[in-house]
Design a protein around this nucleic acid. Structure first.
Length: 201
DNA sequence: AAGAGGATGAACT
DNA sequence: GTTCATCCTCTTG
C-alpha cells in the first residue's frame, strides 16, 4: 500500500506519472478487484481553470480536495458516471489526479459482472466512468482515506517498472469549455498499453 | 426554489 | 457522426 508520503508531495504532475503502473485495488464485502493504472490526468487549483476548485473555490463538493493527500475524491459526472480522483499535496492545496483507465488484474470476472459485459476487453475499464463501475466505486466513497488499513480502496506498488519513454503526454479530455487551461498537456498514459481510453483528437 | 450544465458512455444511424 | 440518458452541485433570484 502506498504511504501517505507518496501523496503529499507537491508536484501533482510527477505524482500523475508515478501512478502509472501502480495498482488500484477495491475490496467490498470480500470481493477484491484491482487493475494496473494506465491513464491519469492532473488537476491543480488555483490556476487550473478546468479544476473544480479553480481559484481555490471551496464548496461542499470541493472541500475534500483541500485536505491532505491520500484521500479519494469521487463525484458524479453528467448525473451518471462516478469519477475517481486521488487528492494529493498538503492540506489547503487542491491538487488531484483523475484515474481514467486501468488494466484488469484481480478478479476480472467480478468486474465484468458489474459492467454487464461478457468479454475481457478494454471497454471494460478504459474510461473514468466505466472504470469506477468495474471496481464498484461510487459517489458514496468520496472522502475515503486511501492510507487507512481498513479502507475499502487503496493503491499498491507491485514493483511494475515503467520506462520514461513509455509515458505519453497530451491534452486532457472533455474540458474544452473550461477556459485557458483546456490545452494544458496534463494527461498521461502508457504508450504501449491497449487498456487506455479512446478519444477524439 | 428553480434551473443550467457538466473531467462520459452507449446505442443508435 | 449523433443523440441522449440522468442527477448532483452551484448559481441566481
Amino acid at each position: 500500500m502506498l504511504k501517505r508520503s507518496f501523496y503529499t508531495r507537491s508536484d501533482v504532475l510527477q505524482i500523475s506519472k508515478d501512478l502509472l503502473g501502480k495498482v488500484l485495488v477495491t475490496s467490498f464485502a470480500g470481493q477484491r478487484t484491482s487493475g494496473i493504472i494506465t491513464e491519469t490526468e492532473a488537476y491543480r487549483a488555483p490556476d487550473d481553470t478546468a479544476c473544480h476548485a479553480w481559484n481555490n473555490l471551496r464548496t461542499k463538493r470541493t472541500e475534500i480536495m483541500f485536505s491532505e493527500g491520500g484521500k479519494a475524491y469521487v463525484y458524479l459526472c453528467y448525473g451518471i458516471h462516478h469519477l475517481f480522483n486521488v487528492v494529493t499535496a498538503q492540506k489547503d492545496q487542491a491538487h488531484v489526479v483523475l484515474i481514467r483507465a486501468i488494466q484488469p488484474l484481480d478478479h476480472p470476472e467480478t468486474m465484468m459482472q458489474r459492467r454487464g459485459i461478457m468479454q475481457l476487453k478494454p471497454q471494460l475499464t478504459a474510461g473514468p466512468g466505466v472504470m469506477s463501475t468495474a471496481l464498484g466505486i461510487r459517489i458514496a466513497h468520496n472522502g475515503v482515506d486511501l492510507c487507512d488499513p481498513k479502507s475499502p480502496i487503496w493503491i499498491e506498488d507491485r514493483g511494475i517498472k515503467l520506462a520514461l519513454k513509455n509515458i505519453n503526454q497530451g491534452p486532457r479530455v472533455g474540458i474544452g469549455s473550461s477556459g485557458e487551461s483546456a490545452d494544458w498537456p496534463w494527461r498521461f498514459w502508457m504508450a504501449d498499453s491497449k487498456w487506455v481510453s479512446k478519444w477524439k483528437k
